[in-house]
Amino acid sequence: MTSVATIDTDLSTETLIALLTSMLRIRMFEERIVALYPEQEMKCPVHLCIGQEAIASGVCANLEVKDYVFSNHRGHGHAIAKGADFRPLMAEFYGKKTGCSAGKGGSMHIIDLPRGVFGTSAIVGGGIPMGVGAALASSLKRDGRVTIIFFGDGASEEGVFYESFNFAALKKLPVVFVCENNLYATNSPQTARHSTCRIADSAAVFGSHGACIDGNDAVSVYWSAKKAVEKARAGQGPSLIEALTYRWKGHVGPEADHEKGLRPKDELFEWIKRCPIEGFKKQLLDTGLLNEERIADITTSIKVEIDDAIEFAKMSQYPSPEDLLKNVYFTPDGGI
């Protein structure tokens, strides 16, 4: 596994900059959550993906707006990489009526249908069959969509993953399974849970393509996902991408695990050296594709966008008690 991204001359400068921008959007958005969380105004659990940004960004760079993403409790990055607006996301974390889920979901349940973010399940593995179902609908309707399902190494232990993969392979559905193997499920290391640590090999059992890749290298994620997305769109069935990575923060909340004595500090520091953003940025600078000024422009505009989203979220109204019983059932007019 390489620790620093390798700049690929086959990729356009535009794509490389888009990858960097996407990762920075996720990182800066989540760092702001870290900064603001102690105010206790965001009254919901947050599962941060700092350190894992290359996977969401590299995969989603291959998608069209109409394509779908299904995700899990650690879903901010997936939504952002798929193009979700900051305002409704942030407002949701603040429990406001203007949130993407009208204050009913919180950080674990985010959605942006126009951008193809199809909702996130906080039941481990729970979103996997739904993503396959969306792909089944695409295949029945022949609408040319591809569905991406993001899930963790922990979710790969759930029976529903195998049931779903088998069905997707059987029906050759346009879906890509992206397992973000951050080596832990809550505090439990993969070695304590898996008889072998090769999740990607599961694909072969179903006659499908599986690849284990460096999930901190946005470029290798990009190429691997590109191949899988093209296969899916061409009607050649699902692929399983296992992207190795590491989460820098705790399972939930803004602190790092070593601050709570949960995981070794050294381990984190080793992975910080493999930061998906820093190495990539350095190479872009070294090759002259970007300069510091341009990067500053990018980060400034992201900062402005985040500031705006925070202000929007803080200024927004809470839902009213009358909203409590709304949306239990779907009605065409959104009533009770």
């Binding site: 739904m130 396959v132 059987l170």
Partner: peptide
């Protein structure tokens, strides 16, 4: 297939997408 839980999720996903 005999995979009742996944098939239910698959039906839900298909329903949610139209």
């Amino acid at each position: 297939p005999l995979a009742e839980n996944a098939l239910t999720g698959i039906a839900i996903g298909a329903a949610a997408s139209g």
